[in-house]
Design a protein around this nucleic acid. Sequence first.
DNA 1: CGCGGCTTTGATGTTCATCAAGTAAAGTGG
DNA 2: CCACTTTACTTGATGAACATCAAAGCCGCG
Lengths: 232, 232
Amino acid sequence: MLGTEKKKCSCLTCDFRDLVFTYLTSADFQRVCDNKVEISYSKGQIINIEGDTMVDFKYLKSGLVKLYKRTANGDEQIIAITRPYEFVSNTNVFSEGRYKYSLSALEDSVACTISLDLIKELVENNGRFGLQLLSVLSRTTEKIISQGLDIRSRNLAGRVAYVLSYFSKEVYHSRVFDLPVSRKEVADFISMSTANVIRTFSEFKRDGIIKSYGRTIEIIDADKLEVVSKRG
Amino acid sequence: MLGTEKKKCSCLTCDFRDLVFTYLTSADFQRVCDNKVEISYSKGQIINIEGDTMVDFKYLKSGLVKLYKRTANGDEQIIAITRPYEFVSNTNVFSEGRYKYSLSALEDSVACTISLDLIKELVENNGRFGLQLLSVLSRTTEKIISQGLDIRSRNLAGRVAYVLSYFSKEVYHSRVFDLPVSRKEVADFISMSTANVIRTFSEFKRDGIIKSYGRTIEIIDADKLEVVSKRG
DNA sequence: CGCGGCTTTGATGTTCATCAAGTAAAGTGG
DNA sequence: CCACTTTACTTGATGAACATCAAAGCCGCG
């Protein structure tokens, strides 16, 4: 398979260990590690498609991904854009056998996949592990719900400001960053038209809130950006 | 406390048993049953408020509830309207100590509450129970996410049609039903203005899609309703 | 170097929020 | 039970917000 590559067990030093696998015994952790397959995806590559059968439990080790679906009219609706250590295995890993949404890499990314059956077996035999998984998964889905509500409660300018602020503060932790998505994708994310997203970018530039050269964004006036985001 | 009332263990015949408590031992199930408190809420009563400390695990036994939050501008944003056997204990039971959203009764409702500590203890000691809980919870949150996306992808008429169809098909399983919410609440649910929701109702009446007398709604032309919902 | 996709901007029309005024319905106190 | 108050509902008129269409520039890629 394209991009597949099996690695020696580097799991012992993986940050993910403390996040979800804290309560596994050494033996069980070793099983996870042996079972694990690390897959690299290059920018733009699809990780999984809605409708596919779910056999693996996946999480993002590095990179950036978008979770999205296709609407009735055929256009793309972006549900979330997340960094590593969020669970990218879709929201319904434990409730359905098929992916409800698609996932693709926005930057070169590495995901670890573990057989879903193994994870289920481990949960069955280790309640503390299950509890931790419940906690991590519910935090992820809660973020998605909350972000959806935030977007819905804002107008065009507020939504654009919100997204810029999100990338700056949550994703890149920097005032300057390269937008990992096209203008159209921003539009698909906030449910607005592409033209109006671009127009809003231009207005923010005109008003001295941001500077931008292509996809590179620099936030000049973070306070004003916050005001626009809150007001709208 | 108002509306509180302790009941003998009727849990053995509760439909919920098969839904979440399938894999508990009889002894553990008895513990749940002894711990359980059944609380009745009358229409309009608040079940819990965002910000409150979460000590109980709650689920709806009968009635209808709305999950909502207050936005920055002070108005209400409705996140979900659900029937029994959905988990009403908020989406983040296992990830945070406080309620992120408020919950109130739209119809007279009965909720069962179980100490969250007990549930956690049971998950720790019984992985199969944990797995089932994972499955049920993720199904609920998935529904909320999915409905949010459905709403966001539609225009005014489409959203109103979607909500009417939702009440008819998912909540009341009937062509005729009493809308359990005000026009304003429909507006808060679909993120549109009250006046325009009402206007849309009137248009649907004019076009022979529905009839309505106050809060009683009768769906006359379900096909056309579906078309409007899909098109918008 | 030419083609196609992404971006930008302007012009136009549609959709939606807001304001206002009026009616119906539902609670409230005498 | 009635007068009073309040809250929900309804409709119209107006303007603001947003989508859509179109034309042109830009950029990367074959």
